Simulated scan of single mutants.
Amino acid sequence: MAKIEIYTKAYCPYCTRAKALLDSKQASYTEHDITMGGQLRTEMIDRAQGRSTVPQVFIDGRHIGGSDDLAALDRAGGLDPLLAQ
Rank of each mutant, 00 (worst) to 15 (best):
A84R: 15
L82Q: 06
P81I: 13
A76Y: 07
K3L: 04
D74T: 05
L40I: 09
D46F: 02
L83P: 05
C15G: 09
Q26T: 14
C15S: 13
S52V: 08
F58N: 00
G50W: 10
C15T: 10
M1F: 09
D33H: 03
G61Q: 01
A27K: 10
L21S: 05
G66E: 08
Q26S: 15
P81W: 10
P13D: 11
D74Y: 04
L70P: 05
R62C: 00
T8V: 14
M1N: 08
L82Y: 05
A48S: 14
T30G: 08
A71P: 02
A84I: 09
L73K: 02
R47S: 06
D80Q: 15
M1G: 12
T8F: 09
D69M: 09
K25N: 11
I64N: 00
I4A: 04
E5Y: 02
G77W: 11
R62H: 04
G50M: 07
L79V: 02
A72V: 06
A27T: 10
P81R: 13
G77M: 13
S52G: 13
I64Q: 00
Q85T: 11
A2E: 01
M1L: 10
R17A: 15
R62W: 00
A18R: 04
S67R: 06
C15Q: 04
Q49P: 02
A20Q: 13
S52D: 15
T16R: 15
Y11G: 04
E5A: 05
I34M: 02
Y14A: 06
I59G: 00
L40E: 07
Q56T: 07
G50F: 08
S52R: 15
V54K: 04
P81H: 14
S67V: 12
K25D: 10
L22N: 01
G66K: 06
